[in-house]
């Protein structure tokens, strides 16, 4: 095979570049654990902002939780919100800048426990913004406590014998819940653990920003992700565990597109 004679220097040239980290991610090393899905989710959102050329018109809201420092990594104007209140903060921004693109980036504890009211009401008002919701079934930053999305029987530092739904309630499918509200125009669930999943997620992110341009209402994208540190697994094991346990309960796919419910059960594609 003649290809063996091709030297790397012939390939590694600017004109042959097919993928590199977007300049809308800063050069600061990410504060996330190795293999954490937050990094991919951050980067994909910034790739879309980059490709749409809307850096100067985009304002992000960072939550409390593992992604509290999102503003250190996303090279756009951002505001850090108190725990759970990102949709209210984003509402304030969007109402003052109706022509700008506004998004929140939140985890499951932030969005689906302490911030449930703000989430539901921002969705119900149909605020013209995007909510990116990373669900890893655990409170990562505080050390792996039970989250509203912790699976039945799943162990966490506050459910060391597994989540007993009789005592602690059921995991909250808030994404299906907000899909019921007339204010949401686009609701979908994605993952970022395989190349195909990341590419699908990116298309959804693009749609969430395009919807804002058209004043269509609120776009809500859940990203089911791993928390390998919290789950006490390697990143590769955690992704496998996620596929086998999280995804049956939180199946990926579109739930609502252009204001129409496309999946009542949100079954996997």
């Amino acid at each position: 095979m003649e290809a063996r004679n091709i030297k790397l220097e012939e390939i590694i040239r600017d004109e042959n570049l097919v993928y590199t980290k977007t300049s809308l991610m800063t050069d600061k090393p990410l504060s996330f654990c190795p293999g954490c899905g937050h990094g991919v989710a951050h980067r994909v959102i910034m790739e879309v902002v980059d490709e749409m050329g809307i850096q100067a018109d985009t304002i992000g809201v960072a939550p409390v939780g593992c992604s509290v420092l999102a503003y250190e990594f996303m090279n756009i104007d951002m505001q850090q919100a108190s725990h759970g209140r990102a949709p209210a903060v984003a509402t304030g921004i969007k109402r003052c800048w109706p022509d700008k693109y506004v998004f929140t980036y939140q985890g499951d504890g932030d969005l689906a426990a302490i911030g449930t009211a703000e989430t539901i009401h921002a969705c119900n008002r149909g605020e013209n913004m995007a909510i990116f919701f990373v669900n890893n079934g655990i409170y990562g930053m505080t050390g792996g406590q039970m989250a509203p999305t912790t699976l039945p029987g799943m162990r966490s530092s506050t459910t060391p014998y597994g989540r007993d739904v009789a005592l602690m309630g059921n995991p909250l499918k808030i994404t299906e819940l907000v899909a019921m509200l007339p204010g949401t125009c686009f609701v979908a669930r994605h993952t970022v653990h395989t190349p195909l999943a990341v590419r699908k997620f990116k298309k959804a992110v693009r749609m969430a920003f395009e919807n804002q341009k058209l004043n269509k209402g609120l776009s809500f994208i859940e990203i089911v992700s791993n928390c390998n540190s919290g789950w006490k697994m390697t990143p590769v094991q955690a992704n496998k565990w996620m596929e086998e346990n999280m995804l049956p309960y939180f199946p990926p796919g579109d739930i609502k597109v252009n204001g129409e419910m496309v999946s009542k059960t949100a079954k996997s594609e």
Binding site: E10, I11, I12, R13, N16, L17, V18, Y19, T20, K21, M25, P29, L30, F32, P34, G35, C36, G37, H38, G39, V40, R43, V192, H193, T194, P195, V198, R199
Partner: peptide, 18 residues
């Protein structure tokens, strides 16, 4: 194919193709 770079959480992989 850039699959590695796409899933890399830390964005440390740059891909070239010719």
């Amino acid at each position: 194919c850039a699959n590695c770079a796409v899933v890399c959480p830390d964005g440390v992989i740059t891909v070239y193709r010719k």
